[in-house]
Simulated scan of single mutants.
Amino acid sequence: MPRRGRRGYPTAMLIGLDLRAAYFWTIYSESAKFYKIFQRNIDDEKSIYRFHEEIVETIRALLHEGFTGIIVASEDRMPYSKIFLDHISKRHRWLDDRVTVKVLTGKATTASQVIQLINANQLQESVANATEETGVKLLEQLDKALDKGNILYTIDELNYVVNSNKKPVTIMVTEEFNQRNQTNRRFQSAIQVSKNIGATVVVIKTTNPASPRLNQLGGFACVITQ
């Protein structure tokens, strides 16, 4: 279980679905936090589109924080997860390039239900699978940036870029690099400024497919636009 008082870094978004609402949770390396509830008007079938769009807009707003997985949970034999995934597939294919979506069978509408998923290791397994698949996507993005020269290797370079016409797009740091620089003011400032202008900041676990390549670069890499 997560240690009390520690949040950790972002890993996944958990969406618990039932007939009446969506329960949105943010999952971190050391904690799980309730974020928001989306109510659905069950008497108006047309409202389901707006209901799903509200969820997607919240996902879009949080992606730059570095969440690499979306876990959609609902009871077995209930269609809620499938209907939402169909909505994403038809109208938001851009999500496939940014993050990995996984389905989890189980309830995630209350804190006690989320704790049960954690105690049964179901949530951790789903998050691990999602982040691993997203790691492959990040590795492809990193390789393309290396080929084009659209890459930064140091905090000093990032500090320079955030004050120039170029723009950081994705910042990747290993778990070890992130831990070492928790008290580094230049690093924390550059990361916050990058987030403020729309960059995604992702912490990469040792087991992630992108970790070996990132370690070769010193544990830090930033993809930029020219």
Rank of each mutant, 00 (worst) to 15 (best):
G135D: 15
V127T: 07
N119L: 01
E175M: 13
T200K: 14
T131D: 10
G66Q: 05
A145Q: 04
L95N: 09
T183R: 06
A108F: 03
V203A: 07
N119H: 04
E75H: 06
L19R: 10
A120V: 01
L14C: 06
S126T: 08
T154F: 14
L117T: 05
Q226V: 03
R7N: 03
T109M: 03
V56F: 09
G8L: 06
F24Y: 11
R3S: 07
I151T: 10
M13K: 05
R40M: 04
Q179I: 02
V103F: 09
A130S: 11
F220W: 04
V136M: 15
D43C: 10
N41L: 09
V101D: 10
W94Y: 03
L142H: 00
R40F: 02
L117A: 12
S81Y: 05
E157S: 08
E65A: 05
A73W: 04
M13Q: 08
V72Q: 09
T58N: 13
Q39E: 01
Y153R: 14
H64C: 07
E176P: 11
D86A: 14
G5E: 02
F220R: 03
Q141C: 03
L62H: 09
G149F: 04
R50W: 14
R93S: 04
R93A: 02
L158S: 07
W94K: 01
Q192R: 15
I15P: 08
R3L: 06
E125C: 04
R40Q: 03
L85C: 11
S211G: 08
D76E: 10
R50D: 14
E45W: 00
Q116L: 04
T68P: 03
F51E: 11
T109E: 07
P79D: 08
P212Y: 10
T183W: 04
Y49W: 13
P79G: 11
I115Q: 11
E65R: 12
L95H: 11
V193Y: 13
K167T: 06
V162K: 09
L85I: 15
R98P: 03
Q188I: 09
T154D: 15
T174V: 12
S31T: 00
S126I: 07
P10V: 15
F67W: 08
T225V: 05
S194W: 10
R3P: 01
L146D: 01
P168Y: 11
C222K: 03
F220E: 05
R3A: 07
I155R: 12
V72N: 11
R180C: 11
T58K: 14
P168M: 12
S29D: 00
L19Q: 12
H52S: 15
Y9P: 04
Q216M: 12
S112P: 00
K33D: 00
I151D: 04
A32W: 02
A61P: 05
Q188K: 08
V193G: 12
G149E: 02
R180H: 13
R40P: 01
Y23F: 08
D18G: 09
